[in-house]
């Protein structure tokens, strides 16, 4: 399934001084995939759009700290 959270596994050494973070994540925001915005994309209701920061559903991609909620910031 498509996600804007990507993961990779860096090399970890048996001699790493800190407990290794086995999976690292990074964000590939939706603007990377859309190109020139096509017409007639689905919109949020206006009031909701004001709070979300965008009118366009395709560009809405909120970021949560992985430390804030375990479910939203970690790629799921």
């Amino acid at each position: 399934m498509f996600t804007t959270r990507k993961q990779y596994e860096p090399y970890t050494s048996p001699f790493d001084p800190c407990p290794p973070i086995r999976v690292k994540t990074y964000v590939t925001a939706p603007n990377l995939y859309v190109g020139f915005q096509p017409p007639n994309l689905p919109q949020f209701p206006l009031r909701e759009a004001l709070m979300k920061g965008t009118l366009w559903q395709v560009f809405y991609d909120p970021y949560y700290s992985p430390y804030e909620t375990k479910t939203k910031g970690d790629g799921s």
Binding site: P30, N31, G35, F36, Q37, K52, G53, F59
Partner: peptide, 20 residues
């Protein structure tokens, strides 16, 4: 964080418009 999320979303939109 709620306010910061809004600001971050705007950065995504701005990047999109500059790409356009």
């Amino acid at each position: 964080n709620d306010g910061l999320r809004f600001l971050r979303e705007r950065e995504i939109i701005h990047a999109q418009r500059f790409r356009e």
